[in-house]
Protein backbone atom coordinates (compact mmCIF):
# COMPACT_ATOMS: atom_id res chain seq x y z
CA UNK A 1 0.00 0.00 0.00
CA UNK A 2 1.42 3.38 -1.00
CA UNK A 3 1.39 5.89 1.80
CA UNK A 4 1.44 9.64 1.49
CA UNK A 5 4.68 9.92 3.46
CA UNK A 6 6.42 7.68 0.93
CA UNK A 7 5.21 9.90 -1.90
CA UNK A 8 6.35 12.99 -0.01
CA UNK A 9 9.82 11.48 0.17
CA UNK A 10 9.78 10.92 -3.59
CA UNK A 11 8.66 14.54 -3.99
CA UNK A 12 11.55 15.81 -1.91
CA UNK A 13 13.97 13.72 -3.94
CA UNK A 14 12.51 15.00 -7.23
CA UNK A 15 12.92 18.59 -6.14
CA UNK A 16 16.51 17.87 -5.11
CA UNK A 17 17.23 16.28 -8.50
CA UNK A 18 15.48 19.14 -10.28
CA UNK A 19 17.55 21.68 -8.35
CA UNK A 20 20.81 19.93 -9.21
CA UNK A 21 19.91 19.71 -12.90
CA UNK A 22 18.92 23.38 -12.81
CA UNK A 23 22.38 24.24 -11.50
CA UNK A 24 23.84 22.14 -14.30
CA UNK A 25 21.62 24.09 -16.69
CA UNK A 26 23.06 27.35 -15.35
CA UNK A 27 26.55 26.05 -16.04
CA UNK A 28 25.96 24.39 -19.42
CA UNK A 29 23.20 26.56 -20.89
CA UNK A 30 22.13 23.41 -22.69
CA UNK A 31 18.42 23.51 -23.48
CA UNK A 32 17.94 19.77 -23.10
CA UNK A 33 19.37 19.97 -19.58
CA UNK A 34 16.91 22.76 -18.84
CA UNK A 35 14.04 20.67 -20.09
CA UNK A 36 15.07 17.80 -17.81
CA UNK A 37 15.30 20.17 -14.85
CA UNK A 38 11.74 21.40 -15.41
CA UNK A 39 10.47 17.88 -15.99
CA UNK A 40 11.95 16.71 -12.69
CA UNK A 41 10.17 19.58 -10.93
CA UNK A 42 6.87 18.78 -12.66
CA UNK A 43 7.23 15.10 -11.86
CA UNK A 44 7.71 16.03 -8.20
CA UNK A 45 4.69 18.29 -8.42
CA UNK A 46 2.44 15.51 -9.73
CA UNK A 47 3.67 13.10 -7.05
CA UNK A 48 3.14 15.76 -4.41
CA UNK A 49 -0.40 16.49 -5.61
CA UNK A 50 -1.19 12.79 -5.35
CA UNK A 51 0.38 12.64 -1.91
CA UNK A 52 -1.66 15.58 -0.63
CA UNK A 53 -4.89 13.98 -1.87
CA UNK A 54 -3.82 10.68 -0.33
CA UNK A 55 -3.10 12.36 3.01
CA UNK A 56 -6.54 13.94 2.90
CA UNK A 57 -8.02 10.47 2.41
CA UNK A 58 -5.85 9.05 5.19
CA UNK A 59 -7.22 11.71 7.51
CA UNK A 60 -10.74 10.48 6.69
CA UNK A 61 -9.66 6.89 7.26
CA UNK A 62 -8.45 7.92 10.73
CA UNK A 63 -11.83 9.46 11.41
CA UNK A 64 -10.59 13.07 11.53
CA UNK A 65 -11.63 14.03 8.03
CA UNK A 66 -10.01 17.39 7.45
CA UNK A 67 -8.00 18.99 4.64
CA UNK A 68 -4.23 18.58 5.05
CA UNK A 69 -3.70 22.22 6.05
CA UNK A 70 -3.97 22.00 9.79
CA UNK A 71 -0.47 22.05 11.24
CA UNK A 72 3.02 23.30 10.51
CA UNK A 73 4.09 20.15 8.64
CA UNK A 74 1.07 20.21 6.36
CA UNK A 75 1.37 23.92 5.71
CA UNK A 76 5.06 23.69 4.79
CA UNK A 77 4.27 20.86 2.38
CA UNK A 78 1.45 22.90 0.88
CA UNK A 79 3.72 25.94 0.63
CA UNK A 80 6.26 23.91 -1.40
CA UNK A 81 3.46 22.70 -3.63
CA UNK A 82 2.20 26.23 -4.30
CA UNK A 83 5.73 27.46 -5.05
CA UNK A 84 6.13 24.89 -7.82
CA UNK A 85 2.60 25.61 -9.05
CA UNK A 86 3.24 29.35 -9.40
CA UNK A 87 6.67 28.71 -10.91
CA UNK A 88 5.08 26.34 -13.41
CA UNK A 89 2.45 28.88 -14.42
CA UNK A 90 5.05 31.61 -14.92
CA UNK A 91 7.38 29.31 -16.83
CA UNK A 92 4.63 28.07 -19.14
CA UNK A 93 3.41 31.60 -19.79
CA UNK A 94 6.71 33.46 -20.19
CA UNK A 95 9.11 30.66 -21.17
CA UNK A 96 11.99 31.68 -18.95
CA UNK A 97 12.93 28.28 -17.62
CA UNK A 98 16.07 29.50 -15.89
CA UNK A 99 14.20 31.15 -13.01
CA UNK A 100 13.60 27.60 -11.78
CA UNK A 101 17.20 27.57 -10.60
CA UNK A 102 16.31 30.28 -8.09
CA UNK A 103 12.83 29.06 -7.20
CA UNK A 104 12.94 25.25 -6.98
CA UNK A 105 15.48 25.47 -4.10
CA UNK A 106 12.80 27.19 -1.97
CA UNK A 107 10.43 24.28 -2.59
CA UNK A 108 13.19 21.75 -1.91
CA UNK A 109 14.14 23.51 1.32
CA UNK A 110 10.55 23.46 2.48
CA UNK A 111 10.03 19.78 1.67
CA UNK A 112 13.25 18.62 3.26
CA UNK A 113 12.60 20.65 6.40
CA UNK A 114 9.10 19.19 6.63
CA UNK A 115 10.25 15.61 6.02
CA UNK A 116 13.29 15.70 8.29
CA UNK A 117 12.37 17.95 11.18
CA UNK A 118 8.61 18.38 11.49
CA UNK A 119 6.03 16.14 13.12
CA UNK A 120 4.05 14.55 10.30
CA UNK A 121 1.30 12.97 12.42
CA UNK A 122 -2.28 13.50 11.30
CA UNK A 123 -3.96 15.17 14.28
CA UNK A 124 -7.62 16.01 14.78
CA UNK A 125 -8.56 19.67 14.45
CA UNK A 126 -8.61 21.79 17.62
CA UNK A 127 -11.85 23.79 18.01
CA UNK A 128 -10.34 27.07 16.78
CA UNK A 129 -9.58 25.54 13.36
CA UNK A 130 -12.91 23.76 12.81
CA UNK A 131 -14.23 26.01 10.09
CA UNK A 132 -14.41 26.16 6.31
CA UNK A 133 -12.76 29.55 6.53
CA UNK A 134 -9.54 27.68 7.33
CA UNK A 135 -9.50 26.33 3.79
CA UNK A 136 -10.16 29.65 2.03
CA UNK A 137 -7.79 31.55 4.29
CA UNK A 138 -4.87 29.13 4.10
CA UNK A 139 -5.12 28.48 0.36
CA UNK A 140 -5.21 32.17 -0.61
CA UNK A 141 -2.43 33.10 1.80
CA UNK A 142 -0.11 30.35 0.67
CA UNK A 143 -0.69 30.94 -3.04
CA UNK A 144 0.22 34.56 -2.33
CA UNK A 145 3.31 33.59 -0.36
CA UNK A 146 4.38 31.28 -3.17
CA UNK A 147 4.11 34.03 -5.77
CA UNK A 148 6.30 36.18 -3.51
CA UNK A 149 8.81 33.34 -3.26
CA UNK A 150 8.99 33.25 -7.05
CA UNK A 151 9.31 37.05 -7.16
CA UNK A 152 12.11 36.87 -4.60
CA UNK A 153 14.00 34.31 -6.71
CA UNK A 154 13.62 36.56 -9.74
CA UNK A 155 14.75 39.61 -7.74
CA UNK A 156 17.87 37.80 -6.59
CA UNK A 157 18.64 37.07 -10.25
CA UNK A 158 18.02 40.75 -10.99
CA UNK A 159 20.43 41.88 -8.28
CA UNK A 160 23.14 39.52 -9.50
CA UNK A 161 22.71 40.53 -13.11
CA UNK A 162 22.41 44.27 -12.38
CA UNK A 163 25.54 44.19 -10.25
CA UNK A 164 27.45 42.52 -13.05
CA UNK A 165 26.19 44.97 -15.65
CA UNK A 166 27.24 47.86 -13.44
CA UNK A 167 30.79 46.61 -13.06
CA UNK A 168 31.23 45.36 -16.61
CA UNK A 169 29.69 48.38 -18.30
CA UNK A 170 27.59 47.46 -21.26
CA UNK A 171 29.68 44.54 -22.46
CA UNK A 172 27.58 41.40 -22.85
CA UNK A 173 27.63 39.20 -19.78
CA UNK A 174 29.56 36.01 -20.09
CA UNK A 175 29.48 32.76 -18.13
CA UNK A 176 26.48 31.83 -16.09
CA UNK A 177 24.97 35.31 -16.33
CA UNK A 178 24.54 35.00 -20.09
CA UNK A 179 21.74 32.53 -19.49
CA UNK A 180 19.83 35.02 -17.32
CA UNK A 181 17.07 36.98 -19.01
CA UNK A 182 17.90 40.68 -19.51
CA UNK A 183 17.43 43.01 -16.51
CA UNK A 184 14.37 44.60 -18.06
CA UNK A 185 12.70 41.22 -18.45
CA UNK A 186 13.58 40.22 -14.89
CA UNK A 187 12.12 43.48 -13.60
CA UNK A 188 8.96 42.80 -15.56
CA UNK A 189 8.71 39.16 -14.39
CA UNK A 190 9.20 40.30 -10.80
CA UNK A 191 6.27 42.67 -11.23
CA UNK A 192 4.15 39.95 -12.82
CA UNK A 193 4.81 37.51 -9.99
CA UNK A 194 3.83 40.16 -7.47
CA UNK A 195 0.77 40.94 -9.55
CA UNK A 196 -0.29 37.35 -8.86
CA UNK A 197 0.75 37.44 -5.21
CA UNK A 198 -0.67 40.79 -4.15
CA UNK A 199 -4.35 40.10 -4.91
CA UNK A 200 -4.00 36.67 -3.29
CA UNK A 201 -2.41 38.11 -0.16
CA UNK A 202 -5.15 40.74 -0.05
CA UNK A 203 -7.77 38.00 -0.31
CA UNK A 204 -5.88 36.03 2.33
CA UNK A 205 -5.97 38.97 4.74
CA UNK A 206 -9.63 39.63 3.96
CA UNK A 207 -10.66 35.98 4.47
CA UNK A 208 -8.60 35.94 7.67
CA UNK A 209 -10.42 39.05 8.88
CA UNK A 210 -13.78 37.56 7.91
CA UNK A 211 -12.96 34.39 9.81
CA UNK A 212 -11.76 36.30 12.88
CA UNK A 213 -14.95 38.32 12.81
CA UNK A 214 -17.02 35.19 12.52
CA UNK A 215 -15.19 33.28 15.23
CA UNK A 216 -14.18 36.02 17.69
CA UNK A 217 -16.24 39.05 16.81
CA UNK A 218 -13.36 41.27 15.74
CA UNK A 219 -12.10 41.41 12.21
CA UNK A 220 -8.88 43.00 13.34
CA UNK A 221 -7.20 42.72 16.71
CA UNK A 222 -3.55 43.58 15.95
CA UNK A 223 -2.52 40.06 16.81
CA UNK A 224 1.16 39.63 15.80
CA UNK A 225 0.32 37.35 12.87
CA UNK A 226 -2.27 39.77 11.53
CA UNK A 227 0.09 42.67 12.00
CA UNK A 228 2.90 40.91 10.19
CA UNK A 229 0.65 40.05 7.26
CA UNK A 230 -0.22 43.74 7.10
CA UNK A 231 3.49 44.60 7.20
CA UNK A 232 4.04 42.28 4.23
CA UNK A 233 1.12 43.91 2.47
CA UNK A 234 2.56 47.41 3.10
CA UNK A 235 5.92 46.35 1.69
CA UNK A 236 4.40 45.05 -1.53
CA UNK A 237 2.12 48.09 -1.79
CA UNK A 238 5.32 50.16 -1.54
CA UNK A 239 6.79 47.97 -4.28
CA UNK A 240 3.81 48.58 -6.58
CA UNK A 241 4.11 52.33 -6.14
CA UNK A 242 7.89 52.20 -6.46
CA UNK A 243 7.52 50.77 -9.92
CA UNK A 244 5.60 53.80 -11.15
CA UNK A 245 7.95 56.31 -9.53
CA UNK A 246 11.07 57.60 -11.19
CA UNK A 247 14.24 56.64 -9.36
CA UNK A 248 12.60 53.68 -7.64
CA UNK A 249 12.40 51.32 -10.61
CA UNK A 250 14.78 48.42 -10.99
CA UNK A 251 17.16 47.90 -8.12
CA UNK A 252 15.14 49.46 -5.32
CA UNK A 253 12.04 47.62 -6.48
CA UNK A 254 14.02 44.36 -6.45
CA UNK A 255 15.23 45.10 -2.92
CA UNK A 256 11.65 45.76 -1.81
CA UNK A 257 10.63 42.45 -3.33
CA UNK A 258 13.37 40.59 -1.40
CA UNK A 259 12.54 42.43 1.83
CA UNK A 260 8.89 41.62 1.21
CA UNK A 261 9.63 37.92 0.98
CA UNK A 262 11.79 38.03 4.10
CA UNK A 263 8.85 39.65 5.90
CA UNK A 264 6.56 36.97 4.44
CA UNK A 265 8.73 34.20 5.85
CA UNK A 266 8.83 35.94 9.21
CA UNK A 267 5.07 36.30 9.10
CA UNK A 268 4.72 32.61 8.33
CA UNK A 269 7.37 31.10 10.63
CA UNK A 270 9.00 33.77 12.74
CA UNK A 271 5.81 34.94 14.39
CA UNK A 272 5.09 31.43 15.66
CA UNK A 273 8.65 30.80 16.75
CA UNK A 274 9.43 34.14 18.38
CA UNK A 275 6.15 35.91 19.18
CA UNK A 276 2.92 34.79 20.78
CA UNK A 277 -0.59 35.18 19.49
CA UNK A 278 -3.81 33.59 18.36
CA UNK A 279 -2.50 31.62 15.41
CA UNK A 280 -1.68 28.16 16.58
CA UNK A 281 0.36 26.66 13.76
CA UNK A 282 3.72 25.40 14.83
CA UNK A 283 3.26 25.53 18.57
Amino acid sequence: MISSSMLFNITTLSYLVSMIIFFAFLATKNRVVGLFASCAAYFGFIVQTTAIILRWKESYALGHGHAPLSNLYESVVFFSWTIILIYGLIELKYKYRIIGAFVVPFAFLGMSWAQLRLDSGIEPLVPALQSNWLLYHVITCFLGYAAFAVACGISIMYMIKAKHEESAGNSPAGGILASFPPCKVLDDLNYRAIMIGFPLLTLGIVTGAAWANYAWGTYWSWDPKETWSLIVWFVYAAFLHARITRGWVGKRAAILSIVGFAATIFCYLGVNLFLSGLHSYGR
Binding site: I231, T245, A263
Partner: peptide, 23 residues
Protein backbone atom coordinates in the same frame (compact mmCIF):
# COMPACT_ATOMS: atom_id res chain seq x y z
CA UNK B 1 4.32 59.12 -4.72
CA UNK B 2 7.63 59.29 -2.83
CA UNK B 3 5.58 60.30 0.19
CA UNK B 4 3.36 57.25 -0.42
CA UNK B 5 6.33 54.90 -0.51
CA UNK B 6 7.86 56.49 2.58
CA UNK B 7 4.59 56.29 4.49
CA UNK B 8 4.04 52.66 3.54
CA UNK B 9 7.58 51.76 4.60
CA UNK B 10 7.17 53.74 7.85
CA UNK B 11 3.92 51.95 8.61
CA UNK B 12 5.53 48.59 7.88
CA UNK B 13 8.54 49.20 10.13
CA UNK B 14 6.75 50.87 13.04
CA UNK B 15 4.10 48.15 13.07
CA UNK B 16 6.82 45.75 14.18
CA UNK B 17 7.03 47.47 17.58
CA UNK B 18 3.58 46.35 18.64
CA UNK B 19 4.33 42.74 17.74
CA UNK B 20 7.36 42.70 20.02
CA UNK B 21 6.09 44.75 22.99
CA UNK B 22 2.97 43.38 24.71
CA UNK B 23 -0.10 45.45 23.95
Amino acid sequence: LKLTISLLICLATTSIIGTVIPQ
